[in-house]
Amino acid sequence: MQTLGIILDHYSYVITIFLMMSGLYIVAARGNMVKKLVGLSIFQTSVYLLYIEPAKILGGTAPILDPAFSVYSNPLPHVLILTAIVVGVATLALGLALAVRINEAYGTIEEDEIFERDRET
């Protein structure tokens, strides 16, 4: 019964880690570069969750000050993650641009085909 309680208390962390590991698995196991980039961004969003989850206080409210409320979530992780999201899309775009250029140079974005092409030359 106590173990069940611990698992419920940490359920959100477990899901976060599951997302993180799915991202890692996609990056490691798939050869397609666009798929790898999607995997990377899944990993990234799981890190957002990892930051935001501890900031929540049960019974608290969003950190916009108002005389009607006294308990607020911790605003600091929100700031860090807010900027990280926008930077994340900028770097995703950079990765996609690289994939497009690689596709133009090699005619494929599958990793092993590119390695084969390199070995031939």
Binding site: I64, L82, I85, V86
Partner: peptide, 12 residues
């Protein structure tokens, strides 16, 4: 300043 939002969101 008073609700959710700011430069990043508005820019997007």
């Amino acid at each position: 300043d008073y609700g959710p939002g700011g430069g990043f969101q508005a820019g997007v």
